[in-house]
């Protein structure tokens, strides 16, 4: 597996900690992820139950089982990415580089990179109801940054599309600067977002001094 050196921000002291973006995850890697994350998800669930938090307010991906995504990862156009920090998988993303096309002008009809799955480790979740602050920030954003990079490498000029779960809609609109294009009946009514090439350029340049 090839890697790109990066950092993630530790929430407790805002320090940037060394991490690696890995590309080319294999099926066995997803099984390791599921093994590591399952125990933490179970703890989260127990804390939510003990605190009496209503189920609609639980993290929407609490029931995901990453080992079930193995067949998808084996498709030719799929690529698995992960961020590893302190020897643990902090976040995972699966992208597809074929079969998805831009809905927005001016590149309408041209191919884009589709983010099929993206999630951070349960110990990075912020759940105020049970006083969970999350260990690391910037994991999800860095994975999305990698998706934009991959889109450029594929010749898609940074165009990215995805269906966000409801709790994540603000992240893709406000942080990633994507444009919501309506709910998709074929995808459980999830909101579909797209990043144009212009928005992609702006996203990659965020934080640069003017």
């Amino acid at each position: 597996m090839s890697g790109i050196e990066t950092f993630v921000q530790r929430r407790s002291d805002k320090e940037l900690v060394s991490a690696t973006i890995l590309e080319g995850m294999a099926a066995t890697d997803l099984l390791v992820v599921e093994n590591e994350w399952r125990a933490e998800r179970s703890s989260v669930m127990q804390e939510l139950l003990s605190a009496g938090v209503a189920r609609p307010n639980w993290p929407e991906s609490l029931h995901w089982d990453w080992s079930r995504k193995v067949p998808e990862l084996q498709l030719l156009a799929s690529t698995g990415f992960g961020i590893v920090c302190e020897k643990r998988w902090q976040g995972v993303m699966i992208t597809k580089s074929a079969g998805y096309f831009t809905r927005l002008e001016p590149d309408k009809g041209k191919p884009l990179l589709y983010v099929d799955y993206l999630e951070v480790a349960p110990w990075n979740w912020v759940i105020p109801q049970i006083n969970r602050d999350g260990l690391y920030k910037t994991v999800g954003s860095t994975l999305f940054w990698r998706a934009v990079q991959q889109s450029e490498e594929e010749g898609f000029h940074g165009r990215v599309g995805l269906h966000a779960l409801p709790q994540a809609e603000p992240f893709y609109e406000k942080v990633c600067r994507m444009r919501p294009l309506g709910r998709d009946a074929s995808k459980q009514n999830l909101l579909y977002f797209e990043l144009t090439r212009q928005q992609a350029a702006g996203f990659l340049k965020m934080g640069e001094s003017k």
Partner: peptide, 12 residues
Amino acid sequence: ACPSVSVGGMAC
């Protein structure tokens, strides 16, 4: 302001 990042198109 936006802590959740979950994308789940493949789940569908």
